[in-house]
Amino acid sequence: MIWAKNSIKILFCTSFMLIQLSASAQSYVGRNVKAAIFSSTPIEDIRAVSVNGTAAIISKTKEVVVQIPIKSLTFDRKLMQEHFNENYMESDKYPQAKFKGTIDQDIDFSKAGEYNVTVTGTLSIHGVDKVRTIPGKLTIGDGVLQIFTEFKVACVDHKIKIPKLVITKIAEVISVKVDGKLNLLK
């Protein structure tokens, strides 16, 4: 009788563990997420790109996190890159740009296809947090997620000051594009 009781207990625990394991298997992570910024004024266009972003999505909680190291954004003009880090982003103090939010729609992660989604959460750039709802595209494949988003960031929202002298060269609103592939975490 005692023996039977214990086996039930063990069986229960084992199945509980298995459930947990299968739940954790619903995490997707991606390295080398591409992020591009674009500033456009009638005087000058400036572009920079990073391929060192990271992203994670948990299907159960619909949680999304994307993080870009500011110093990994490269410009074709190195001096401009140095000024970007030193004078505008202060990347020694604020090394990462990060968005953390949850998907607003109900998504069946087991069904392949393309979904237009919005993600509501906190965008933190230059040490300033801003609640944003960002539209994006989620493509579900076999153990693979593809994310794509394009949105705008106003420099003033994140206390990034543009001096009057260069106001004609740097846009007050910067376009941001993020593109990445996430794999099922095994």
Partner: peptide
Amino acid sequence: SIFLTQGFAQNADSLLRTLDSGKADTKVDA
């Protein structure tokens, strides 16, 4: 099993941290 539960009940933040290890650019500029 409780230990396992906690071990796997990761949020996206801590998942990201496991990816970021040792990737930071440490060069001092300007």
